[in-house]
């Protein structure tokens, strides 16, 4: 038991060191966005994928690149356009004249960090190819199944304003993303700092690797060992069930949502040095985890509310349990 506790604590320490180093490194490039970086790392550690809803120019690409460099993972950027084909994502078999056989040329999906820019501009067929790859961790091309890299995270972006010429992700597909976040514009002071930083050159050119990205699967395993007592699980379930019965929502969060909240709360606990989940962790992750899985009632949309508002409201009213209470 004691050794268990000790090894548990050691493991937590390892994860914390990992994330702290990455965050410190990335902050050399991206200023004042620590929570966002944390969220991305959480998604990475939970083996999930991220949906970034943001206006252009907030540094999404820079962020993804910085993380990739810090961890030494392979980074690919995929610009989605309406004429993008599924094979452009997964890869294609090409006939090699010299060898007289088919060769598989892997697509961008075979990287570790894939930034799929403006995913809502790709056609549904291409979207589903990518989402399938995300979900299964492997692709089949011409009858052959090729496993994807480990770790593999997709950072899909979309512009919340533009609706012309887009194929908005349907509800079922939104559900596959672990978290949704938006980076947003930097504060005035931070923007000023950014301009000063980029006076001579871009800091990302001097960025170095600081951690070993191949350890990530191990760390992902550690996350799963974080303890959550029955009350916490009950609290998560109460929250999710409240979304299902809320009269402002046409559709509440699915069981995938409960699982996602559970997992991300564990990761959040570890990032803050605990090997057990507390309700505060759940509350912190709730909006990012659940808001994109729900659909508002039409009257609510007219009122200007968002699903995030509904989640915040529920966080105030759902009772936080104490043990045995």
């Amino acid at each position: 038991m004691a050794s268990d506790v000790e090894s548990g604590e050691k493991a937590i320490e390892e994860v914390r060191e990992f994330t702290d180093s990455v965050i410190a490194n990335v902050e050399k490039v991206i200023v004042g966005k620590r929570p966002t970086i944390e969220l991305i790392l959480i998604a990475l550690l939970c083996e999930g994928h991220l949906l970034i809803e943001d206006v252009p120019g907030t540094g999404k690409t820079m962020l993804a690149r910085a993380i990739a460099i810090s961890t030494g993972l392979e980074f690919k950027r995929l610009q989605c356009t309406p004429d993008l084909l599924p094979n452009d994502v997964t890869g294609v078999s090409i006939f090699n004249q010299k060898k007289r056989e088919f060769e598989f040329r892997p697509g961008p999906a075979f990287s570790s960090i894939l930034l799929a820019d403006e995913i809502n501009r790709a056609t549904p067929r291409t979207q589903s190819a990518l989402l399938e790859a995300m979900g299964e961790g492997q692709v089949s091309v011409d009858g052959v199944t090729y496993p994807l890299a480990k770790p593999f995270i997709v950072l899909a972006t979309q512009n919340p304003i533009e609706f012309e010429g887009t194929f908005p992700l349907p509800e079922a597909q939104m559900d596959r993303f672990l978290l949704r976040l938006s980076i947003g514009y930097p504060g005035i002071a931070d923007e000023d700092k950014m301009m000063q930083m980029q006076q001579t050159g871009h800091p990302i050119e001097n960025l170095k690797q600081v951690v070993d990205g191949t350890r990530i699967p191990e760390l992902q395993h550690q996350i799963r060992r974080v303890h959550a007592v029955e009350n916490i699980r009950q609290y998560i379930l109460n929250l999710v069930h409240a979304t299902r019965s809320h009269n402002g929502l046409a559709l509440g969060a699915s069981p995938r949502g409960s699982l996602a909240l559970y997992r991300t709360a564990q990761a959040y606990a570890v990032l803050h040095g605990r090997d057990f989940v507390i309700p505060d962790d759940v509350k912190h992750m709730a909006v990012a985890c659940l808001a994109h899985r729900m659909v508002l009632n039409p009257e609510k949309i007219l009122g200007g509310e968002t699903t995030a508002d509904v989640v915040r409201e529920l966080l105030k009213s759902v009772e936080v349990p104490m043990t045995d209470a």
Binding site: I278, P279, D280, K283, K316, S317, V318, E319, V320, M322
Partner: peptide, 9 residues
């Protein structure tokens, strides 16, 4: 005290 307040909050 709201029901949804955690001990730390």
């Amino acid at each position: 005290f709201d029901p949804g307040i955690t001990p730390y909050e």
